[in-house]
């Protein structure tokens, strides 16, 4: 990873409320995530973690409040769904993403150890490998703000560690991250945001 690709993006949410199906799911959220910082959302099922993440990623319009990002096209959202096509092979999925984000996919494939399965259709992969492919999109995108829902669900210990290392590397280069998880995650210096039901 070169030092040239330094990120400098800050995401700010002010007094944010998000509703789904006409019902307010989360409100009063204030959050600032700057270069090198990370925030971890925690809370019971149904607390609105996914809804909040999707709003922060710009996929859901907030009911009130505002979200500002200091650069355009800086956010990448990786939800519980991996966003790949089941009938395409691992490499075909990665190549498609690389074309969309205008980047290369080689480093991402190596970072998540996907070479052994690169020619297999995604639907034939185990849950863990599918998740690794989904997470590889974060690296492919080259975007500054990672917004990830349950990053380590389905991952084995080694892959979880690999993700933690990549996250640390991303933050060291000035990247930011907002994660929602139920599992213990080693992210030094990350702020925790507790959501209540």
């Amino acid at each position: 990873m070169s030092d040239a690709a330094q990120f400098n993006v800050t995401l700010t949410a002010r007094d944010l409320a998000v509703s789904r199906g006409g019902r307010v799911i989360v409100d009063g959220v204030n959050l600032v995530v700057g270069p090198g910082e990370a925030a971890v959302l925690r809370g019971p099922n149904g607390a609105g973690k996914t809804t909040l993440l999707r709003a922060l990623a710009g996929l859901l319009a907030p009911a009130s409040g505002e979200i500002t990002v200091s650069a355009e096209d800086a956010r990448i959202y990786c939800g519980v769904l991996n966003g790949g096509k089941p009938t395409l092979t691992v490499t075909e999925n990665l190549r498609f993403w690389a074309a969309l984000y205008g980047a290369s996919f080689g480093p991402a494939r190596a970072a998540f150890g996907l070479e052994p399965v690169e020619d297999r259709p995604m639907r034939e992969l185990s849950t863990g490998y599918q998740r690794r492919l989904g997470l590889a999109r974060l690296v492919v995108s080259g975007r500054a703000v990672w917004i990830v829902d349950e990053p380590t669900a389905g991952l084995d210990a080694a892959s979880t560690t690999a993700f933690e290392c990549l996250l640390a590397e991303h933050r060291a280069r000035g990247g930011a991250a907002i994660l929602a998880t139920h599992e213990p995650l080693d992210a030094p210096g990350a702020r925790t945001l507790e959501l209540e039901q």
Binding site: G58, V80, G83, G84, K85, P86, W97, L100
Partner: peptide
């Protein structure tokens, strides 16, 4: 929409 790639298309 079902496999999450709609989010990817929208975001890019």
């Amino acid at each position: 929409r079902e496999d999450g790639s709609l989010d990817v298309l929208v975001e890019t």
